[in-house]
């Protein structure tokens, strides 16, 4: 696997797509010039730890945290929809969803 310390404008555009942010050309240019230095800095971690080191996903280890399968009160339909930008027929109104048949 390559370890690119650089990141092209096209890379930033691709990442913005994954992150669903419609970045302007100016923003793309700016990030494309700014991110490489940050990436160069953080890339240092690649040399820090060997394969034998465990990756830490939880700083305080706990296992098997469950809840009983018991119903708790839900929000009312009005509470659920109260902050919705749009709603209709008790549902959240969203623009047309692509890839729907």
């Amino acid at each position: 696997m390559s370890e690119p310390l650089g990141i092209s404008r096209a890379d930033v555009a691709h990442l913005a797509g994954l992150a669903r942010i419609d970045l302007s050309d100016a923003e793309l240019d700016h990030l494309a010039t700014e991110l490489p230095s940050i990436l160069e800095y953080v890339a240092a971690v690649q040399q820090a730890a060997g394969d034998d080191v465990e990756a830490m996903s939880h700083p305080v280890p706990v296992n098997n945290v469950f809840r009983e399968d018991v119903v708790r009160p839900s929000l009312t339909q009005d509470e659920a929809l109260a902050m919705a930008p749009a709603s209709d027929q008790g549902r959240f109104g969203v623009p047309k969803i692509l890839g729907e048949e």
């Binding site: 696997m1 390559s2 370890e3 990442l15 994954l18 991110l35 971690v45 820090a48 730890a49 080191v53």
Partner: peptide, 25 residues
């Protein structure tokens, strides 16, 4: 964008994965 990059396929191990190991160290 930085986080999306660090998690994206091909870079996960080098970035996010390595960073989580540093936490252990």
């Amino acid at each position: 964008i930085l986080g999306t990059y660090a998690l994206s396929s091909g870079y996960y191990d080098a970035y996010y994965g390595s960073a989580q190991k540093v936490r252990t160290l």
